[in-house]
């Protein structure tokens, strides 16, 4: 697929109608089923969804790191870093020269479990130096100096000594800092953060979120922040995309998503979260049923069997189009407009 129109000047990443399928013995799993979103320069896009919503697989498609059994079934991913050249990522092979130039250099990545992303047999310093030498052409000494600076920047205690430590010698929070240092080592235009605080304790999580916000403000990089935690997304994101069963069901600014959600799924999820210091009654409101298994996705709107507002004959027949609102908010629901009026009435 080729780029149909040019990217606006402020655009950094454009994900357009991306499909990723997994052929399995039991049938075809459409893990990503027409996902579109964009990221502008310097913004933090939060992507929330429950497990199986396709949020991580979409990110892997961007990074060209899909599992080997994945089939890309269409869509276009375009990326234009600060240096100005444009990459059509969806057309690139996972190990092509161009991709290796983008990954690590223009797109940094951090994951939930640093232990699996960092090499256990190389010191933290070596791993960061290797990246800097490769992408920025520094010599060994200059790279080591920059690596120490990076560790100081992610508030690592005793950065000089840390260079010679191995990942297993660090605590979970410190490993996450080391991975962040590695990810930002080449001043990327985009950081993809996939559940980076999920395995951490709340006090450490708060530290890491603060650090990411500071680094974002200092460097002006954009962040795609993937999480299942609505609290975390409320804290860090400028804009939010809510995903369900391989589709983006709603996108809006963070305030609109939380205070004026337009999609019934967003609304129902937000209601089911216990909030600190808020009396919610003895029973939590729930979403009936469960996320359907990926081999038997309901016809029409995939949320219809669980939706309190579903209208038979409409929602279980036709897949809804995206409804756009004047404020830029968009929801994939037949009745998004009516629901919005009901909320404001």
């Amino acid at each position: 697929m080729t780029a149909s129109h040019s990217m606006p000047a402020e655009r950094l990443l454009d994900v357009e109608d991306v499909h990723v399928h997994f052929p399995m013995r039991e049938g075809l799993v459409k893990a990503v089923n027409g996902v579109s979103y964009h990221v502008d320069k310097g913004e933090v896009l939060g992507i929330v969804g429950e497990s199986g919503s396709g949020k991580s697989i979409t990110a892997r498609a961007i990074m060209r790191l899909l599992p080997r059994n994945a089939r890309e079934a269409g869509g276009c991913i375009r990326f234009r870093p600060r240096t100005g050249e444009e990459f059509e990522l969806s057309a690139l092979e996972r190990n092509s020269r161009a991709v290796r130039q983008v990954r690590g250099r223009h797109i940094g990545m951090i994951f939930q479990e640093p232990m699996t992303a960092l090499s256990p047999v190389h010191s933290i310093g070596d791993q960061i130096c290797r990246t800097i030498q490769l992408h920025m052409g520094f010599d060994r000494q200059a790279a080591r100096k920059r690596a120490a600076e990076l560790l100081a920047r992610v508030r690592m205690p005793r950065p000089q000594q840390m260079l010679d430590n191995y990942p297993h010698q660090l605590s979970g929070g410190m490993r996450q800092r080391a991975m962040i240092a590695l990810a930002i080592s080449c001043d990327p235009s985009l950081l993809i953060a996939d559940e980076p605080t999920t395995a951490l304790d709340v006090t450490t999580e708060a530290q890491i979120l603060e650090l990411l916000k500071e680094l974002q403000a200092e460097t002006g990089m954009a962040i795609v922040f993937i999480t299942h935690n609505f609290g975390v997304v409320a804290d860090i994101a400028d804009r939010v995309a809510v995903m369900y069963l391989g589709r983006v069901v709603e996108t809006a600014t963070v305030d609109d998503v939380f205070y004026a959600p337009k999609h019934p799924y967003t609304k129902a999820l937000l209601n089911s979260i216990p909030r600190l210091g808020v009396e919610q009654g003895r029973r939590l409101p729930t979403i009936p049923g469960m996320v359907p298994d990926p081999f038997s996705v309901p016809a029409g709107c995939s949320f219809n069997p669980r939706c309190a507002h579903a209208v038979p004959g409409v929602c279980d027949v036709t897949a809804p189009e995206q409804h756009r609102f004047a404020n830029g908010q968009a929801a994939r629901c037949h009745f998004a407009e009516q629901l919005a009026e009901a909320v404001h009435a």
Binding site: A206, G231, V232, I273
Partner: peptide, 9 residues
């Protein structure tokens, strides 16, 4: 104080 809440404001 550390727990981020689903309440941006």
């Amino acid at each position: 104080a550390s727990v981020p809440q689903p309440d941006p404001r």
